[in-house]
Amino acid sequence: MTRPDGRPALVTGATGLVGGAIALELLRRTEADVYCLARDTSREPAARRVPRLLTRAAADYGMDDVLDEIPARVRVLSGDITEPGCGVPDALLPAEIGEVWHAAASLKYRDRDRAEIELHNVTGTRHVAGLALRLGARALDLVSTAYVVGERTGLITEEPVTADRPANNVYEDSKRAAEALVSELPVDTVRILRPGIVIGHSETLAAPTTFGLYSFVDELTAFRTKVEAKLGNYLDHYAIGILGDPATRGNLVPVDTVATAAVRLSLVGAPGGIYHLTNTEASRLGEALAALTGALGIRSPRWVSDRAELNSIDAALSERLEFQAAYMLQDKVFDASRTRRHCGDGLLTVPLSPERIGEYITRYLKDGAAEQVVAARKAAPGV
């Protein structure tokens, strides 16, 4: 299958979880070249880093059919979205691009990092939008997040964000601004793609990321290590108190489901607008956390509705879960009617039992990412 207009695609964020999966899906479903815009680092130039990470992801996802396509069709553009023109001289730009996929972003969320977050997620989006215009792209797809709606609860439709509920953090704020920016872009088609909480591959369970669900794993792993160093096997006997509602629904969606839906929207010529790339089978927070603690070998948490019910050890964990705290109290259900209209009803339905979630977490722990996080935090103060 070729691209709708036969022209190559350009992907930002191809070294990340969602951007990399989209690049691989484009290689699998189309025949055109895929340009990947990425920064050179002090240790490795983009020309080596991009194909290395894409090759690793393809192997992790069992996409053997794509491995030969990476050296044959991936074209790396060394640049930086935080710089004007994305730091790419005109002479190095491809002659034409049919569609731009903007997945690069800062995933930080704290107020102290506001300048950096806005530089990447707002200014960076502005630069990518300008690059799309320079390249004559007919479509731009912005990867946002379903949680851009902030404190809103209940049924969330595929509509622009309203100001009736504040954002939970700076990250959400920056994504709101990015969505508003591209919605006015004078290209034929602008799609705003809002994934849920992206987890590993639906079959291999691999997840080259430490964000989303896996940040929970990292925080609890680091917390367990701290507690064991001071209190021995305390967690074998005491259930940690967590402020939240176990009935709260969270939307976990495999990365390959997100990438398949995103690329399918393009290939079928879906019109511009907002699309939820979310799982129609929501997960309950209580079940997910029970699976997580089970995989870590500690007792399931006890849920409390009042911070006063937390003891000092519980409170120490609560501080670590600063980012996740709001989402443990805000019940959201994401309507994906527009996406299903173009992608079919089955694609976005991925049942995730507690046992299956536990398997994702076990795979993540087996891959050793959480151990690296713990090693980096051993000198951190407090429990």
Rank of each mutant, 00 (worst) to 15 (best):
R249M: 10
N251A: 11
L252H: 12
L252P: 12
V253K: 04
V253Q: 05
V253L: 09
P254Y: 02
P254F: 02
P254R: 00
V255C: 11
T257D: 08
A259V: 00
A259G: 00
A261P: 04
A261K: 01
A262Y: 02
A262F: 04
V263K: 09
V263T: 15
R264L: 15
L265I: 11
S266T: 04
V268H: 05
G269N: 00
G269A: 00
A270K: 08
P271F: 08
G272V: 07
G272M: 09
G272C: 11
G273Q: 03
Y275M: 01
H276A: 01
H276M: 02
L277R: 03
T278K: 11
T280S: 15
T280P: 11
T280G: 15
E281Y: 13
S283M: 07
S283F: 09
R284L: 14
L285N: 02
L285V: 03
G286L: 04
G286W: 05
E287I: 01
E287Q: 10
A291Q: 05
A291F: 06
A291E: 04
L292W: 05
T293V: 03
G294N: 06
L296T: 07
L296D: 09
G297M: 03
G297A: 04
I298V: 15
I298Q: 02
R299Q: 05
P301E: 10
R302C: 11
R302T: 12
W303K: 09
V304A: 08
V304K: 05
D306M: 15
D306Q: 14
A308H: 13
A308L: 14
A308Q: 14
E309T: 09
E309G: 05
E309N: 11
L310W: 03
L310S: 05
N311K: 10
S312F: 13
I313H: 04
D314L: 12
D314F: 13
A315D: 15
A316I: 14
A316S: 15
S318I: 07
E319Y: 13
R320L: 13
F323P: 11
F323Y: 15
Q324R: 05
Q324A: 09
Q324P: 03
Q324W: 06
A325H: 10
A325C: 06
A325N: 09
A326W: 06
A326N: 06
A326M: 03
L329R: 12
Q330K: 13
Q330N: 14
Q330M: 14
Q330D: 12
D331E: 10
D331F: 07
D331Q: 07
K332N: 01
V333K: 02
V333A: 08
F334M: 04
F334N: 02
D335A: 11
D335K: 00
A336D: 09
S337H: 12
S337Q: 09
R338A: 15
R338L: 12
R338D: 12
T339F: 00
T339W: 00
T339V: 01
H342N: 02
C343I: 10
G344D: 08
L347Y: 07
L348F: 14
P351W: 08
